[in-house]
Design a protein around this nucleic acid. Structure first.
Lengths: 331, 331
DNA sequence: TTCCAGTCTGTGCACGTTCACAGTCTTCTG
DNA sequence: CAGAAGACTGTGAACGTGCACAGACTGGAA
């Protein structure tokens, strides 16, 4: 049983291919009579346009590719991805654009992505949490519309992005801790080659000034275990600290364990502030005071940027969205 | 600057289209001389085959679609999705198949998916956590290769799937709790229209027999809040219980909070067992004894089933993978 | 020598669209 | 009433590939 083509529809409706095509593509100049005849023919035959044939002539694929960088095996960002993917699918579906997923873990992956895009298999690219100096950014070139979800640091080629105001979020938390009367405030950062790692520390330093001594700063890699280690190190270096800002909720969970092991109460002895407001934030004891990122809106804006580019916008401005302090019990 | 076509490559290599095509598709009968000439021409011109043109003639798209059912806004399963997506992308990329994502939340979504598949825009379908009686399963028909990640319950059309042995996992936990000398063991289940909801209860009942009275069973919806509510209800109905098996880690985190609020110690007064071994399991206090699901392997096997179908297998058998008990401190 | 099998190559056609163009019919304007 | 403008329709030519087929060349067997 062959799939019906535009010919079949035209024949069934008693018109020509051209008219059917015009209706399909929402052009003007289709008479009401033709319109109803074609619409009936379409539903009778169960016709659906052949995308390959269309792509062949229009040079457009009707799909965009989302590129996930996965430097580490499993990151705290996982839940974030899910939100992003969902929002992107939904928004793109409105325009009948489909979302293709690709990975950019190693060199082979990146090459595949470049081939894919250069080959014209997608109309646009959406980068996700791309690392500093990722060669992919330059390899893609400026030919194809590309945006990033989350800032791309170390860019030679500027690429439009939507992101949360990481620095603002860190300031909010730091100010809150100071406002609570905490005097010796430490920080556990993320990896210093990610926007979240760098900018959350910057925001912290904005508020603490020279009180943010290196003695009070430890680095983690987003994992819970690293948060635990960093907290232990911090306690050793500065036993008198009375608050700590941890750059992710998952690491904060680790920090809580280290504090408990050291016999410190939270928030009594030490106040703990997290970041992300992920599902972990409510499952710890005590629940984490943290910074909520407007993930869905970031995803939304990222899609908006890409759509604008697809619609021919020459240049688009980055979008940075504000974070929000969520007060629970840990601080 | 036009993209090079197979004609250009043929001309540059001094052969005909046909020969280039044969090399590209790995057919026999390409002389060594032609081979090197073509390979050089390809890399010189930067040629990459036009997928649309190829699809048009082969009737294959080289892509499969993953359909995410999202009945609720945000589920505990989010992190699971990430693993699944990553594994699927990677495995499919090996065969140069790309992964398209779609949502099947409401009727409109499902219609879109059916149109997509029926329109031949994808060579196969991968269903994810499809709910009971999802009309999508029947709507897809038996024409296109389709598999499911996670069992599809209430199926009229049987659809091959890979899944974890939910029932086994529940038995493992129940047996462990019994083995620890617990006498009054309650359970908090998931929604009873999901495989995880039904089968984890079945496994629990397998071990407890008639001790699994309805008085000791409460239902949740996978959310932390529902776990907390269910635990509170359970404590009211059966104040003497000394253990509870919670069908997800996130709900278990809620249960922990309810127990703490009621002044019960864990595991002293009440032992708590979770399910999933998600990131939440290690962030609670105490860390959860739980059941680990081999998510990556499930994803792997799901892809295997689909690939087998794509390769023309008439029928494939479901794959069910064993779970594993992870002992921490909550039980 | 003749024939055949095997290896390799080139060519025409079909795949199902969109687009530009030419054409027809209607209605309005001067 | 002539002419123009507008509304609508049909047609041929691409788009870039894979496939079937026909043909050319080789080496070996009869």
């Amino acid at each position: 049983m062959k799939r019906p083509t535009i010919h079949d529809v035209a024949a069934a409706a008693g018109v020509s291919r051209g008219t059917v095509s015009r209706l399909l593509n929402g052009e003007r100049y289709v008479s009401p009579a033709a319109r109803v005849a074609i619409e009936r023919a379409i539903s009778e035959t169960g016709y659906v346009v052949n995308r390959a044939a269309r792509s062949l002539v229009t040079q457009r694929t009707g799909s965009i590719v989302m590129v996930l960088s996965e430097p580490h095996e499993k990151l705290f960002e996982d839940p974030n991805y899910s939100t992003l993917i969902r929002v992107a699918i939904r928004r793109l579906a409105e325009r009948d654009i489909s979302l293709v997923m690709m990975l950019a873990g190693d060199e082979g992956d990146r090459e595949r992505v470049v081939r894919y895009v250069r080959g014209g298999y997608a109309d646009g690219v959406m980068l996700v949490s791309t690392h500093a100096g990722d060669p992919l950014v330059n390899a893609l070139g400026s030919t194809t519309p590309a945006v990033s979800c989350g800032a791309v640091i170390g860019r030679e080629t500027a690429i439009p992005y939507a992101a949360t105001d990481e620095r603002l979020g860190a300031r909010q938390m730091a100010e809150y801790l100071v406002g609570q009367g905490r005097k010796r405030i430490g920080m556990i950062t993320g990896p210093m080659d990610t926007p979240g790692g760098i900018q959350r520390l910057e925001g912290f330093a904005d508020v603490l000034g020279r009180k943010a001594s290196t003695k009070l700063i430890a680095h983690g890699d987003w994992t819970q275990a690293s948060g635990e280690r960093a907290m232990a190190a911090l306690l050793e270096r500065a036993p008198d600290l009375d608050a700590v800002f941890v750059a992710s909720d998952l690491m904060a969970a680790g920090a809580l364990a280290a504090l408990r092991a050291a016999g410190r109460t939270v928030p009594g002895d030490v106040a703990v502030g997290g970041f992300d407001d992920s599902s972990v934030a409510t499952s710890t004891h005590p629940p984490l005071t943290t910074i909520r990122q407007p993930l869905a809106e970031v995803a939304n804006e990222t899609v908006n940027l890409l759509l604008a580019l697809l619609d021919g916008a020459k240049q688009v401005e980055p979008v940075i969205l504000p974070t929000e302090l969520v007060i629970r019990e840990s601080a």
